[in-house]
């Protein structure tokens, strides 16, 4: 194998496609990559079939970059296959790392999602009330199948063993390049590492020094409710910024766009549950000791679970809403 270039695969599960875009976004750098590696599987860009992968020797792919969460049986099957064939698996992007935006579906289940998507959503036009069937026998006797849609969205590492994580929605170019270089040079950190600094975003954030001596929040504002100061720390403006509970490495791209951090990089290594941890920090800043007033401020936070777990619900301790209470 020494003369051969290392084989690399890319795969896409439950995600928006932005991560594929991120690879393309490497622009001319991608040429360096393709020069150094042999891409053996990349459904979005190249014509390979599942059978091609099946035909490969186990462990013959040097590294598979898998983006997207796992939410159906096909994805589960494919990632298991890739795991078998690959030496390393990198969870690429927030969705495979943490569950990501698709992971917010864990506040629902298959039934309620189908009901909304195929019946009740305003844009649905489905007079027969058809919903996806997993199996259908055609008139000619042929059997058609669709993957099974699960009740719960998984992170990649809940389904297969993952070696590294490239965080971000999507992972920024410089992190991708550093990761690939490290893999090629064999200079990898210990298994399970998230390939981004283990400090929270405030460390990088240019607004950090604008924090007042004592942060105190009287009312919580959503970004569109106020005219945002583009230099002052969002928390100091009463806007929820997940930055302090989010790993750095994104080069504060949202902040620079005058939007608070939503937490796509996930928590730092020491944190078990990004949402709960952020809640613990944020609630402490509410500026009142009076029960009623606290309730009042709490009521200005419209969707705490959705806000604090925007990217990390499937990877959180609870993973999802209690099944029996989903309506």
């Amino acid at each position: 194998m020494s003369t051969e270039k290392p084989k690399v695969a890319f795969y896409w599960c439950a995600s928006c496609g932005g991560c594929e875009e991120a690879v393309i976004d490497l622009a001319e750098d991608i040429l360096k990559v393709t020069a150094a590696v042999d891409i053996v599987f990349w459904p979005v860009a190249m014509d390979f079939k599942k059978t091609d992968v099946e035909a490969m020797e186990d462990g013959s792919i040097a590294v598979s970059f898998i983006n997207g969460a796992v939410r159906n049986s096909e994805q589960e099957e494919m990632v298991n296959l890739l795991r078998r064939k690959s030496g390393l698996v990198v969870a690429f992007g927030s969705c495979s790392h943490l569950g990501g935006i698709p992971g917010l579906a864990n506040f629902w289940n298959r039934k309620t999602i189908f009901n909304s998507s195929y019946h009740t959503s305003p844009s649905t036009d489905n007079p027969e009330g058809t919903i996806p069937q997993e199996k259908h026998i055609m008139e000619d006797g042929k059997e058609l199948t669709l993957p099974r849609f699960y009740d719960t969205v998984y992170t990649l590492d809940q389904v297969i063993d993952v070696d590294y994580y490239l965080p971000g929605c999507a992972p920024p170019k410089h992190l991708i390049m550093t990761a690939i270089t490290a893999i090629l040079e064999g200079k990898l950190p210990s298994k399970g590492a998230v390939l981004s600094p283990n400090k929270s975003l405030c460390d990088d954030c240019g607004r950090n020094d604008s924090k007042p001596e004592k942060l105190a929040i009287k009312a919580v504002k959503r970004p569109w409710e106020v005219e945002m100061d583009n230099e002052k720390c969002f928390l100091a403006q009463g806007i929820i910024c997940m930055g302090p509970a989010t790993r750095s490495g994104c080069e504060e791209r949202c902040i620079l766009g005058n939007m608070p951090c939503r937490g796509c990089f996930g928590p730092t290594d020491q944190v078990y549950d990004q949402g709960a941890k952020f809640l613990g920090a944020f609630a402490s800043l509410l500026d009142s000791d009076d029960e009623e007033e606290i309730e009042k401020i709490v009521n200005t936070i419209v969707d705490p679970a959705g806000t604090f777990y925007r990217f990390s619900l499937p990877s959180s301790i609870l993973r999802r809403k209690r099944m029996e209470t989903v309506k």
Binding site: A283, S284, I301
Partner: peptide, 22 residues
Amino acid sequence: EGNYKALRRHRLLRKMLEQFGI
């Protein structure tokens, strides 16, 4: 004032847990 911090967290956490069906 530790208990005031507990109070604030409790109120917000309770609200959030309801979203988890708890």
